[in-house]
């Protein structure tokens, strides 16, 4: 039986600058494989780590270099990346359930099936009780877990978390971070966390440091 190759996200000589400004990323080469592992990108503020995440997630086209996505077939995705932001994680007027079901609906799943999948996703992050509450009435931590549930339902191989503890208190941070690392249990994902929180970085399998536009192993 042939083993299916794992989804891979690679950066090839990626450099980036905004407009005619200085390069904030310089010739980065990196590869991330959806093999149940996690990577922390640790860097001070303003060093370009969110930009790097944006390039990985397909929200920003690099000035030079290439982003290669391979073996994403059958994963129902363009970029293969699900995001967990600090704050903007959901459509405010939709319920938590609708915010999660949207990815299943987009794939053309019937409404009932999409709703069931969304309920399972919300249950896995402990949000069953707020499933029908409008997203704008949820707390920041709950919204981040909604995003995590959506990533689970969408079966995205890469989960990009941008400062997940940025606006949360300690107890909520613990819940969210636990939920993030829970997503690795299926062994077919890779969690990439941009953070300056050393405790989160310490839980990751690999810690990379972004310094002077270059990515280095810690």
């Amino acid at each position: 039986m042939t083993k299916t190759a794992a989804p891979t996200l690679s950066l090839r000589s990626v450099s980036h600058r905004f407009g005619r400004g200085p390069y904030i990323l310089k010739g980065i080469d990196a590869a991330f494989v959806a093999n149940g592992r996690s990577t922390a990108i640790h860097a001070p503020s303003g060093s370009g780590k969110t930009t790097l995440l944006g390039i990985l997630g397909g929200l920003i086209a690099p000035s030079t270099g290439r982003v290669q996505r391979s073996n994403l077939d059958g994963r129902g995705t363009q970029t293969g990346c699900a995001w967990v932001f600090q704050s903007t994680n959901a459509f405010g007027r939709r319920s938590a359930l609708e915010n999660v079901a949207i990815v299943a609906m987009a794939a053309g799943e019937p409404s009932n099936a999409a709703t069931e999948a969304a309920l399972r996703g919300l249950a896995s992050v402990g949000l069953s009780s707020v499933a029908h509450r409008p997203a704008r009435h949820l707390s920041g931590g709950e919204l981040q877990r909604v995003a995590i549930a959506r990533a689970l339902v969408a079966r995205m191989p890469f989960i990009l978390a941008d400062e997940p503890s940025g606006q949360l208190d300690a107890s909520t941070t613990a819940i969210v971070v636990d939920a993030l690392f829970e997503t690795l249990s299926s062994n077919g994902r890779h969690l990439i966390v941009v953070t300056h929180d050393t405790s989160i970085a310490a839980r990751c399998d690999l810690v990379l440091t972004l310094s002077d536009g270059a990515l280095r192993g810690a």
Binding site: G76, T77, Q78, R93, R94, I102, V103, M105, A106, A107, G108, A154
Partner: peptide, 21 residues
């Protein structure tokens, strides 16, 4: 995720009616 056209149209329709103010 890749939107099916019908799903994208439905999403726009839902946005119109859930847009509130």
């Amino acid at each position: 995720m890749t939107w099916r056209t019908s799903a994208a149209l439905r999403e726009g329709y839902l946005n119109a009616f859930s847009g509130g103010l």
